[in-house]
Nucleic acid binder design. Structure first.
Length: 87
DNA sequence: GTTGAGCGTT
């Protein structure tokens, strides 16, 4: 089983490869993506990572509250995006 | 600078 992870407070220069590299150290990363504004193309400062539950739990404990690229990371389980309508 | 977007059906 895999878990969806939310990663916030990222630096503008952080990309999907950076996230994947970070989480890959704790387990097999299914997918990693940094969210950016699709209208402007600029980064939103947060991203999502999908990986195996065991690695995800370890990664959350290890990376949450730590400094990354000059910002303290916020790592958590991602909430379902059904919580907000998309028009 | 904080919880996506994609797909005409996951």
């Amino acid at each position: 089983m895999n878990k969806n992870i939310y990663v916030g407070n990222l630096s503008w220069g952080c990309t999907d490869q950076d996230l994947r590299n970070l989480f890959a150290d704790f387990g097999e990363v299914a997918s990693a993506r940094v969210i950016e504004d699709r209208e402007t193309g600029r980064s939103r400062g947060f991203g999502f990572v999908e990986m195996d539950a065991d690695g995800a739990t370890q990664a959350i404990e290890a990376l949450n509250g730590t400094s990354f690229q000059g910002r303290d990371l916020r790592v958590n389980e991602a909430q379902p995006r059904e919580r907000r309508p998309r028009y």
